[in-house]
């Protein structure tokens, strides 16, 4: 059920990507998609009543292993967030220039290339 909500978030992002005409809205859609995938990865690594994978001074190692959530997806998500940041920056740069060259941010008017 938790996964399905993340999936729903993903689909909302895809909806924005597919239907919205403004390039900015498309960027937002992609951001939501990325959020959803990151969330999915973190959910995958979650352990019921789990603790952060950070060993505290004096904490019992065995207890730590039993209680901690999965750290690996977190490492992946960190990478994924950064990749998302890069993508958004690139998209913003592209939209800026598209606005300059085409005079619009309406995606439905961007079809000079076809056929």
């Amino acid at each position: 059920m938790m996964y399905l909500l993340a999936l729903l978030l993903l689909f909302i992002g895809l909806y924005g990507l597919l239907v919205k005409r403004s390039l900015v809205k498309k960027i937002l859609g992609l951001l939501i998609v990325e959020h959803a995938v990151n969330l999915f990865l973190i959910l995958v690594g979650y352990r019921s009543d789990g603790l952060p994978p950070i060993l505290l001074p004096g904490e019992d190692a065995g207890e730590f292993v039993r209680a901690s959530v999965d750290p690996l997806p977190q490492a992946l998500v960190l990478t994924s967030i950064v990749i998302g940041l890069g993508l958004v920056m690139l998209m913003v740069a592209l939209s800026l220039r598209i606005h300059e060259r085409h005079g619009t941010l309406d995606c439905s008017k961007l079809n000079r290339l076809k056929g």
Partner: peptide, 21 residues
Amino acid sequence: LGAPDIAITQVVVEVIVVTVL
């Protein structure tokens, strides 16, 4: 969800993204 590292990164990245946007 027990991911404070991600939470910090997420929040600061969001700040940059929103500012840029």
